[in-house]
Design a protein around this nucleic acid. Structure first.
Lengths: 128, 128
DNA sequence: CAAGTGTATTAAGAGACATAATACACTTAT
DNA sequence: ATAAGTGTATTATGTCTCTTAATACACTTG
């Protein structure tokens, strides 16, 4: 379900959060899907159960999962996280754009890059 | 010259690096400007000299400063860092853009936001 | 009732960050 | 030449975060 990157210097629980969040936002894990138990995912990643517990707790805090004691963790309905996620990435995008403009990148360069990325994104969808 | 943010959880030396880099890229500190000495800046920020030493070492590593033992640290010529900085921010911008698209933000929304930010940026320059 | 869930607690170790106290080589001004 | 101001290096100490480890407990399912 997940592959850890040992060269990554971020905490393990943070990597787990990011990867699971990506799977959820990307639709690979649909709402109401049952997540692996804390103990089984810890076993699979050769990691301490506490670390997974921490990752799940954060994902619940951010609205991606909900927990039922005794039953397990489940992917939350999209309405629980879609808007929050959108705000989060837009804030980050604005910051990155400001930094680019500050560094001397022109508006035209950014527009052109954006067009190019959209084009590539569409080509992938239609299968190139 | 700098104001530390104690709510910021990042290391102090990293904050110092970021702020000085911003002053240099923004033109507030021109090339060949003499930087404050390790000891004096440490005194001013009420911080250990080792911490400033670390910040200066990283800025030198990234091409923003050059060091002359016994004389001090100086802002490097723009040619030493301008291209590297541009590559850095463009990489970050592309990543942020991909994440936005992944999260369901449309290309049109990003284009519109970009236009809006350019407009505001121009208004500031002309003094609104 | 047993096995599988989430949750909580305490202890220990590793590593990064920061402070503290020195020491040394070099440059500048006197 | 000397003193003061530079950068640089080293060692020790303390704090904090991350992680592992070992338990313990409440709840749910079969």
């Amino acid at each position: 379900m997940i592959l850890l990157d040992y060269r990554d210097k971020r905490p393990i629980y943070e990597q787990v959060v990011d990867k699971l969040e990506h799977l959820i936002v990307g639709g690979a894990l649909e709402p109401e899907t049952k997540m692996p138990s804390v103990r089984s995912l810890a076993m699979e990643l050769a990691v301490n159960p506490n670390t997974i517990q921490r990752a799940y707790a954060q994902l619940e805090q951010e609205g991606y999962l909900y927990t039922v004691t005794g039953r397990g963790n489940f992917v939350a309905p999209e309405s629980e996280w879609r808007e929050g996620k959108k705000r989060e990435v837009l804030t980050a995008w604005k910051k990155a754009t400001l930094q680019a403009l500050d560094a001397g990148v022109t508006a035209e360069e950014l527009s052109e890059l954006l067009r190019q990325m959209i084009k590539e994104s569409n080509e992938e969808k239609s299968g190139v």
